[in-house]
Write a protein that binds this DNA or RNA. Structure first.
Lengths: 190, 190
DNA sequence: CAGTTTTTGTCGTTTATACGACAGATAGTG
DNA sequence: CACTATCTGTCGTATAAACGACAAAAACTG
């Protein structure tokens, strides 16, 4: 597929930087992590950092897409029909990802949420759009609006569960599911 | 102490090469390991190998002194008196090192023995010379000869135990010890 | 608030590594 | 034995990484 030959030095150094960053993020607060901390942990020169990333936010973005979120993103994307099971599994994938990462990076997780939200919503919008377009006879515009609101609704549910709910994600989903399903079950136009 | 600043790239690349080599040596026979095998495992360019080592024998030498033999060599060196216990512990250190490494590198160990023998004898000669010179009133020449023969005798014993003995190293040593001790217990000259 | 220290980006120069190519040496094959 | 393929060691060139220095920004301190 996309087999561009990348200089092995770049692969190694990027990995050194990312690994060092992930180590730091598990103990320190994101805002207290300096570039020097990262490059020291990676045993590379500080100037080299800027050869790979513009700043630590850029690095965070790369670490999320290339490491921390790869599993949850591929789990979200692997469904091929929009139904009960798909919605439930997506909800479970996202909530599990969030609780796991927040446990792993107790001090830094808060700083990640905004970037994570953006990436997850992108993924959700993408999969919902595709599934609606493929499986239902809906005009493009309606399809888009449904996907947008499904995305925000299910993502909002994961946040609410995380912050306000005492019950299991499965139990929470039993309440949310009927509402979500009504959002895309449009009568077919003639 | 000897704190010369070494370019971190050199440290990292040397480690990559050595680690890859140690991985290979655990499964393959030394003579069947090519430079390409090593550099592929280390994810470095083949030409870079020659920047660090002249050939795979040079690499083997470095891996032995800097990794595989560091423990046994420091165990040998840490004694400060020539007596029963010292000789026994040295014998046990060496035999344990040999059996462990030979189990770890079943196919390659045979190719290592000559280099290992050289290094171990150097260490043994060094420690025996020092201990004899410090603790006994012996002329330098006698001291040297005693150290040489002690070295060969105890090293030969480890090889014999390894190849021909069914008993425990401790039991073997009970027989060898009295002979070894006679080798340096010279009457003091007046 | 002023004064100090730390951190951030950036730059120029030096060094290490990547890469492809090469001839000679070794090994494998019919 | 000849033939082919693989491996070795070396070279020149391009790129990445190291290093020290710098000014500006940010954070800290009294």
């Amino acid at each position: 597929m996309t087999e561009v030959k990348v200089d092995p030095r770049i692969i190694r150094t990027r990995k050194l930087i990312m690994d060092a960053f992930m180590q730091l993020v598990m103990k320190k607060e994101f805002k207290d992590i300096t570039i020097k901390d990262i490059t020291t942990g990676a045993t590379i020169n500080r100037a080299t950092f800027y050869y790979h990333f513009t700043d630590k936010y850029d690095l965070l973005d790369a670490v999320l897409t290339e490491n921390l979120m790869t599993n949850v993103l591929s789990e979200i994307m692997e469904h091929d029909e929009l139904n009960k099971e798909t919605l439930t599994q997506i909800f479970l994938s996202v909530t599990k990802f969030q609780t796991d990462l927040s446990n792993q990076c107790r001090r830094s997780f808060e700083a990640f949420t905004s970037t994570i939200e953006k990436k997850l919503k992108d993924a959700l919008l993408g999969i919902f759009s595709n599934l609606l377009r493929d499986s239902y006879e809906i005009e493009e515009e309606l399809c888009h609006i449904s996907a947008v609101m499904l995305t925000w609704a299910i993502y909002g549910a994961t946040i609410d569960w995380q912050q306000n709910s005492q019950q299991s994600p499965e139990a929470y989903m039993e309440l949310a599911l009927p509402i979500l399903m009504k959002m895309y079950d449009h009568p077919i136009h003639f």
